[in-house]
Design a protein around this nucleic acid. Structure first.
Lengths: 204, 204
DNA sequence: TTTGTTTTTAACCATTTGGTTAAAATTTAA
DNA sequence: TTAAATTTTAACCAAATGGTTAAAAACAAA
């Protein structure tokens, strides 16, 4: 008769792996560290996950999965440009506030081998698709609702302002002398601040 | 009698180390890879640089050194806010266009051990000091030259828009379907685009 | 209790990796 | 040319690291 694997142990491992991988990256992470962090034997890791690569991919996909999927929904919806911008900032910051180190982790690994990871991450159908959002910018400009601006540049501005503070978190914290609590508050403010800043700039 | 080390070999090593470290990070880089890339024996690495850590720090400091020092000059000068914003974007993008992978490399390593690297990088006197820039924003606001805005938020917006596209380069390229040449052109445009975008937003 | 199944561990193994050594090759100054 | 100093290499070593094995412990069903 069949039994099932102990879910609590598996989750303990995943939690430990998350912590270690996100902090040290694929290469810097040591299987022993993960085992210690999980409070188990190293061999038990290989009992639950065949090897380091497999375990890493599990963590990476989970991390990237949290980061990207809602974006498409927002960009492809029928809302106005301004609403979309507000939704994007607000939702993205909310997600990342709970996992502030995710963006750097994902971007960093993405950088090691862009094509490999992009294919793993977005199998054809659910690739991030900014085309509708970009067209919408052109349309609203032609309708005279916003000033003339390169859609791609605007998209970059939006994403940059939303994501980068998390990537540069330690740098900002040390140079501005702010602690985790203050950083969190700044990010909370940014949910409204960024849309306001953008809209002030482009609205006619 | 004393002779001097062969500078050309040393430079070959540094160039190889730069390439490998920036691509793979401190942990991912292998001394053998660096030796191969430089076309020399592995033992020769240890003849020129005591160990991996030392070689890495050389590369890291050099990289970070390229990235940060001019910033202080700009932020602390006597120019107007708008001029400073233009200078910052223009100069920073120019530097990074020649080394597009520097920001991610530096931010990533900075993240591993923020305090350690910050101390190594900025020994007290030449720490990045945004205070004058932040005060200037408040002043110009009080003078009625710009709209009311949180100085820290504005600073974050400026830095984010300038730096992030390079950090997310592979992501942008794959999702927008643009090659290195097109990316470079976009960044060239941004030298003017970002200041324009910001100024449109904050000027009264 | 007994028996089959799953979970966990300690001990071990093979490979990789940073680093060393001692000798050979090359260069420099005389 | 020669002798000292420097540069380069092949061979080697010790530690770290990912991964395996075989057996013990814990557990579930009868």
């Amino acid at each position: 008769m069949k039994y099932k694997k102990d879910k609590s142990t598996e989750e303990k491992i995943l939690e430990a792996a998350r912590k270690v991988f996100v902090r040290k990256g694929m290469y810097g992470a040591r299987m022993q560290d993960i085992a210690n962090e999980a409070g188990i034997n190293k061999a038990l890791l290989h009992y639950y996950f065949k090897n380091k690569q497999k375990l890493f991919e599990e963590i990476f996909m989970e991390a990237a999965g949290k980061l990207f999927p809602r974006i498409n929904d927002i960009f492809r919806s029928e809302e106005t440009l301004f609403i979309k911008i507000e939704q994007f900032c607000s939702e993205y910051i909310a997600v990342v506030l709970e996992n502030p180190y995710l963006p750097l982790f994902v971007l960093n690994e993405l950088n090691q081998d862009p094509v490999y990871f992009m294919n793993k991450l977005w199998k054809n159908d659910k690739r991030p698709d900014p085309s509708k959002f970009l067209q919408q910018i052109e349309k609203e400009e032609k309708k005279g609702l916003i000033k003339k601006i390169s859609p791609v540049q605007l998209l970059m501005n939006l994403i940059s302002m939303t994501v980068f503070p998390f990537v540069g978190k330690p740098m900002f914290q040390l140079n501005l002398g702010i602690d985790d609590m203050q950083f969190r508050m700044l990010m909370e403010q940014r949910k409204k601040e960024i849309p306001k800043f953008i809209i002030e700039s482009i609205r006619k």
